[in-house]
């Protein structure tokens, strides 16, 4: 399905994602080279949506890891189920007693117990967290590591092995390799500098605000009720609003929300009055609402 760039583009479009040349080339290369994609860009331009569309189009499970400050391997890679381990030792006490009965010395008993040790550190007691789950999935998965810039840099280092070799070293078990190499998508809002080590292991894709045509296509694709004229006016307005230095410039996702609002109101054209009433869909701060109103005055 991902055999050449044009096919990728068509596949994504079927899943409702309009990709440009850069994005579809990135997906194609990620699939053919087996490298993760690191996507940076302002919020709301479709970074996370790309992973979702990819999973939807390929009918792969989407496994999502939302990063936050203080996330660690116990939350991202794997964890041991201590409670279950304890419970089993309690329940198996009689068996253990039987095993150890007749041991001539203490050291022999310890030796016998050590023989069974691997039982308690087996996959049975392993909790799979998103990354391991994506590696051990029955079919190829799409692993979305969302907002990596929110995590600490130690966590980035933790991911390096997984992202470059698609394996995880678990001290008690050894190296666990991926059954199928997942398609990995990392997103970042660039609130923190991602380390070079991580960047090197990824294809770096910067998604900015789309060009007029593509944005019109996106809006019309996501909100089919919108007529061509309205979509064009709306996108032109959004593009202008992005240049006037708002606190939170309206993004593609806001544009889609706005188109939805307008279609609910059955607006056929973008007039000053319509903008005044619906400014809340694209402006997220009071100061921004006022600026949008000023901008609307030009519409007449």
């Amino acid at each position: 399905m991902l055999n050449d760039v044009d096919e990728v583009k068509r596949t994504l479009e079927l899943a409702g994602y309009i990709a440009d040349e850069g994005i579809s080339t990135a997906v194609y290369l990620a699939a053919s080279m087996g490298k993760p994609i690191l996507i940076e860009g302002p919020p709301g331009v479709g970074k996370t949506a790309l992973a979702k569309a990819l999973a939807g189009a390929l009918d792969h499970p989407l496994i999502r890891l939302q990063c936050y400050e203080g996330i660690d391997e116990g939350k991202a890679l794997y964890d041991w189920e201590y409670g279950k381990q304890l419970l089993y030792t309690q329940l198996l006490r009689t068996q253990l007693d039987g095993q150890l009965r007749g041991a001539a010395s203490l050291s022999e008993a310890v030796g016998r117990l050590a023989g069974e040790e691997s039982l308690f550190f087996s996959e049975h007691f392993l909790v799979q967290r998103p990354v391991l789950r994506a590696f051990r999935a029955e079919k190829r998965a799409v692993l979305l590591i969302d907002e990596i810039d929110r995590s600490d840099d130690e966590f980035e280092a933790l991911l390096l092995e997984a992202l470059s070799d698609f394996q995880i070293s678990i001290p008690e078990l050894g190296v666990v390799e991926a059954r199928h190499r997942p398609l990995v998508v990392l997103t970042s809002n660039a609130t923190r500098l991602i380390s070079d080590a991580l960047r090197r292991r990824c294809l770096y894709l910067h998604i900015g605000y789309p060009e007029q045509e593509r944005e019109v296509a996106i809006v019309r694709h996501r909100v089919p009720e919108t007529c061509e004229l309205l979509a064009e006016q709306l996108v032109a307005f959004l593009r202008k609003a992005r240049t006037i230095g708002l606190r939170k410039p309206p993004s593609v996702s806001e544009g889609i929300d706005w188109a939805r609002v307008l279609s609910l109101l059955r607006a056929k054209e973008l007039t000053r009055k319509v903008v005044l009433h619906t400014a809340g869909a694209i402006a997220k701060h009071q100061a921004d609402v006022l600026r949008i109103h000023e901008l609307a005055a030009e519409l007449g």
């Binding site: 760039v5 040349e21 850069g22 990135a26 290369l29 070079d196 960047r199 770096y204 894709l205 910067h206």
Partner: peptide
Amino acid sequence: RARARAALRLTLVKSEAEL
């Protein structure tokens, strides 16, 4: 050309400032 450019960009550029 555009595709080749995208391919090189994805692999050789690692931050927005360098684009």
